[in-house]
Design a protein around this nucleic acid. Structure first.
Lengths: 220, 220
DNA sequence: GACTTAATTTGATACAGGTCAAAAATTAAT
DNA sequence: ATTAATTTTTGACCTGTATCAAATTAAGTC
């Protein structure tokens, strides 16, 4: 691709995320049932998305940090199937889907890019399905912490000192277990010198140990 | 949209799925790690997709029947993260992604359509995440059977007489439980006159009863 | 049809994680 | 600061599912 065209593409991407919005902790961008209008990219902050079942149960389906895009669930029916909530004061870029579509006509890479983003979301969901369907508690927490570590690292933060933005109950909702269980496993991992836990500040002491925790349960 | 343009669009869609392929029961279209080349639409038959974890555990991430499209997981990295296997002799339409991209330039609806398809997959995955994360065995089986029923109905088959194409173990893998548990729940539902079970032939006797089963467990 | 092999069901037992209750630690509000 | 409210941790107990084992049934194979 000629450098010139490439920089045009970058400019377009910038245009795409032109509109920003600040979101206070606890506030929502959209609720389940809202008409779909745009996708959202996290500029700074931390977002959770949750689906709620008729009977009141909620399942957190994703945590999103800087650079990650969410809201794809709304495209199918033009109505969001989930609610997004800021876990801390956040800055969000709004990406109207219509604009994506228009730009795609001119720049095929834009379309490409969004296909890949959606595919990545699907892969991510499959990973969680695997985690929920065939791992047990300790493995889930280990996998979760390693995943966070990696994402922090990719953003230039320390992969070892992690400040959790969500509470224990939310970790539980995401990983399919109760608060008490999450808490117990953190305590256990602390005793085993895998983690050092101080409220929301987690220090990963033994990456290799955590890795070995995954896939190390008797089943099969 | 003018009728003429609409029919052009339909023609394009037909072109898109021009290449077909027969697949014997047990055979795969692609394996985890294979280079991504195309999406696949089920014309006839029944397909499962499964992700495999390093330690050998497998998680079935989807069952696909006539009219449904799979393979989206390969777009992100241009490498499939799952394996697809035919559960019965099937006929599959091959949809090269490049062709989708080209057609999208001419017909914006094609692009639209695929965005929606991927979004639908994401919504579907979130539903399963909710099921795995916050429902228990009986609820999962009830939800699973109702989902199958609805999909059969949408294809013009009876929503009450269902012929399962997968074995109990595969249902278990999909729903995050062991074969024995699946079997026990089928037996229990049969005793309670919710289902009538004869090998893979399931008759749904009480739709309302199954519905009430979901979201009716003590938690919260 | 007889023989193998695979799939499903059933039973007995064990254990991970849920539930209930209460204490301890944090955070927010006055 | 003091009080109130929320979140996290810990303990005791219980339950849903996994596990292990074996019987039963179905589906291939020769």
């Amino acid at each position: 691709m000629p450098a010139e065209a490439a920089s045009d593409f970058i400019k377009k991407l910038d245009e795409l995320v032109y509109v920003r919005r600040r979101l206070k902790a606890g506030n929502s961008l959209y609720h389940s049932g809202d008409r779909f209008q745009a996708l959202y990219a996290v500029k700074t902050g931390f977002i959770k998305t949750e689906s709620l079942h008729d009977d009141g149960r909620v399942q957190i389906t994703g945590f999103y940090m800087a650079g990650e895009i969410f809201g794809f669930d709304g495209i199918a029916t033009e109505e969001h199937m989930s609610t997004s909530v800021a876990l801390e004061d956040s800055e969000i870029c709004i990406i109207p889907l219509d604009r994506v579509k228009n730009f795609s006509r001119e720049f095929s890479q834009v379309q490409n890019h969004f296909f890949k983003l959606m595919s990545r979301e699907i892969v991510r969901d499959h990973t969680i399905m695997m985690l929920l369907g065939s791992m047990q508690g300790e493995e889930r927490i280990a996998a979760f912490m390693l995943n966070l570590s990696q994402r922090f690292y990719a953003r230039g933060y320390s992969p070892f000192n992690i400040v959790l933005r969500m509470k224990r109950e939310e970790i539980g909702s995401y990983l399919g277990m109760k608060v008490e269980t999450v808490s117990r496993i953190f305590t256990k991992f602390q005793d085993q010198k895998l983690l050092s836990v101080h409220q929301k500040n987690i220090r990963i002491l033994d990456v290799e140990g955590l890795r070995k925790r995954i896939g190390q349960h008797p089943s099969k």
